[in-house]
């Protein structure tokens, strides 16, 4: 019994309700971005809740804009942008985009695999709200986004060293400061 067991009170009908929509969307995506898509994991075959499309990092913005604006997709709501540290597996990071369509009520997930030190383009041109989510990924994992308007730490203090959500950062790695952060005037001019 795992996620493939369909429980009606817990989104169990999603797999059947959207099965055809997802199949046609995935085949259209593969037709359009044949080289960019590394892998597709469909629900029921794999223990996942929505189709996961693994995209190469160079074409991520193209795929996201296509998913956002194209007829029949219209995944206009960026539900979540986050990262996973898969170490010791290589490539180390997976950047995860959870998308939701307000018109068809379907969800889809796009993932990009990144190695340590690799950079990926920012999704800010597609969704302004990706700004802070990418800053958080930079803060917590150390992944840099090219073209980001303002890539600096967001949750931790600017002076913090290290990236806390990486698997090698200890749970209790304290770093104590004694003086408050000053205003960053360059951001206000």
């Amino acid at each position: 019994m795992d996620i493939r067991t369909q429980v009606s009170t817990n989104y169990g009908d999603m797999a059947t309700k959207f099965a055809d929509t997802w199949k046609s969307q995935v085949s259209r995506l593969q037709a359009r971005f044949s080289t960019a898509i590394e892998e597709v994991r469909m629900p029921i075959e794999f223990p996942v809740d929505v189709p996961i499309v693994y995209v190469k990092k160079d074409s991520i913005i193209g795929v996201l804009s296509f998913l956002k604006t194209e007829q029949g997709f219209e995944y206009g709501f960026l539900a979540d942008l986050t990262a996973i540290d898969e170490s010791p597996a290589e490539p180390r990071f997976e950047i995860v985009y959870n998308l939701y369509s307000l018109t068809s009520k379907a969800r889809i997930r796009v993932k990009v695999r990144l190695a340590e030190g690799e950079e990926i383009s920012t999704a800010v041109p597609v969704w302004r709200g990706a700004d802070w989510a990418e800053r958080e990924i930079f803060d917590m994992f150390g992944v840099k986004f090219t073209g980001h308007p303002d890539l600096r730490r967001i949750l931790m203090a600017d002076r913090w060293e290290g990236h806390p959500l990486r698997k090698d950062y200890p749970l209790r790695g304290y770093q104590v400061f004694t003086d408050p952060d000053p205003i960053n005037q360059s951001l206000l001019d």
Partner: peptide, 20 residues
Amino acid sequence: VPEGEAYTQFEGSNGEAGFY
């Protein structure tokens, strides 16, 4: 918990609250 991943959302008081 068996292997797998899921993003479960709910209409929280503030908006879409979710656990991935």
